[in-house]
Amino acid sequence: MGRPMQVARYWRHFKEKYRLIGGKCKSCGHVHFPKRPVCPECGSQEVEEFQFSGKGKVVSWTIVRNPPSGYEYYKPYPIALIQLEEGPVILAQLTDVDPEEIDFGMEVEMVTRKVREFEEDGIILYGYKFRPPIK
């Protein structure tokens, strides 16, 4: 499972990973995730924070059966490209779902879950995953 890096490496992205805050261009209105210093649509450097709703749909998915080291404990796990309702596509794990039920266009919502643990130093990494909405 390896040893974590300095804590700063992980907490600097809490806004994005815990709350799904991305960027919105003040010039052209383009929203993206994560927030960038330069708008990928118009090149403007005037980008402000933008709160995504956390709702989206599955664009494509796979089941990771041979994970990178550090993630073996969780295998096999589904990973998907998810189009957020505001437009951008992001990559995340799917959770609380039967892999057989995953389909193109399946509705999902963001939840905060454990992404990785390390055997040394006790840091646990959390982040967004997506699941079918609880109705």
């Binding site: 990973k17 494509s60 796979t62 990771v64 041979n66 990178p68 550090g70 990559l91």
Partner: peptide
Amino acid sequence: WELFHGVSFVALNAL
């Protein structure tokens, strides 16, 4: 924004 979520290169190509 990719590896953090446990994706492998094979998985990206599988998508």
